[in-house]
Design a protein around this nucleic acid. Sequence first.
DNA 1: ATGTCC
Length: 484
Amino acid sequence: MSKLKLTGKDLRGIGYPEGPVISVAMTVMQKHYKHEAKEDVMALLQKILAAPVEYENDAVLGLIAEKLIPKKDLLDGESISLNQSGIQFNVFGQEHIEEGAMHQMYQAAKLPVSVAGALMPDAHSGYGLPIGGVLATDNAVIPYGVGVDIGCRMCLSIFDINPKELTDKESYFARELGEATLFGSGAQFDRAANHDIMDHALFYTLPLLKHLHGRVWKQLGTSGSGNHFAEFGIIEVKEKDAVLGVPAGHYVGFLTHSGSRALGANIANHYTKIAISKRRLPQDAKNLAWLSLDEQEGIEYWNAMNLAGDYASACHHVIHDKIAKQLGRKPVKMVENHHNFAWKEIWEGREVIVHRKGATPAGKDVLGIIPGSMTADGFIVKGKGESASVNSASHGAGRKMSRTRAIASVTDKQFKEELKKFGVTLLGGGLDESPFAYKDINVVMQSQTALVDVVGRFTPKIVKMDGAKHRNWSKKERPDIVGE
DNA sequence: ATGTCC
């Protein structure tokens, strides 16, 4: 049985317009019509193009049809000016923050919907709101104020196991770590894990999510790429904190950092496009386009974002449950938090939408995790509820070097020596994620003593990240030779 | 961050 081969060129050839419909049509046909003859598929695609409204309610073809039906409200987006002067916002650790991130935050402060904001000491520039940016708005949600990896988060399990076992039985822990999750862009399991989240009604009602359901399911419990990791380390609790509730002592910790994989990325990109077409902002602020929580698309985004957050959480839980089962232990405590998300919160007596894009929630007595790097300690923190930071803290050390610069300026030898110096075993992981690429977490923590208390410390010992394997990459794309 | 339609 020959498999359907359909290209963007084929689609454009029969008159399909440039835009998302091309990829949607390719994905849909290759998934649901893969064994049909190409001429039949092309004829069907032509019919959909000629009369998309007739296919609008088709469970499968409706996905293509809806991209071909012009949406009136998308065609006449309103033009919006930024305010002359923005809201005041506080910057923590300003001396460490690059100019680009400051500029992005100034732009965000001038949005007509902005109420309050803050910049965390690990801030650096991103799309829309800077990474490390916190923005509270009035009844509006900014998809790129949350970020592409919706629900990117930390999860820590604390096991009452003597940390000496980590060094004594390193190969055992390394093997368990290797089997607990999958890394890599596009990584998915052949056999999907089970979790109630996959029964969520939105997967069956929102066209965008319908066609993602299968892939999203197989990605449950995977970790993705970039700065995502899973690691074993030593937890030190100096004295028992009432909220953390863990007695003073040393423990084995299992810490994960990952998000909502393809699900969140698709939701973010879909709704930011809608926001951008509905609200035309000046060029350098255009990625800050928002959706109102009173309009259909805003409500849809809000619900989908919450689903992506729950899914990201489920992914971590699948991984942590596996580890607990493999170790034959129940964690004495789990701590977890989103750091790319938006919440409805009360700020200075007023209901606002708080976007934290690379920022840890730090409301009064709220626990969170701020990781360091693969060799630097991370911290279990307890929020102080500081209004000046809109109840937030940093989400890590922050990058000091771009990926390209890290790859160009750090050698494998230096990298290996650094790992050895700290007694860290690394599985996967590239130069772009080496400790040299990150700011000093201790300096960052010093800049936010007013925001959080440290209630525990995590020292990484066995770290797993996406490998620098360059599987299908062309020479041009291989990061190890970028900058030659 | 994501297998980024060519």
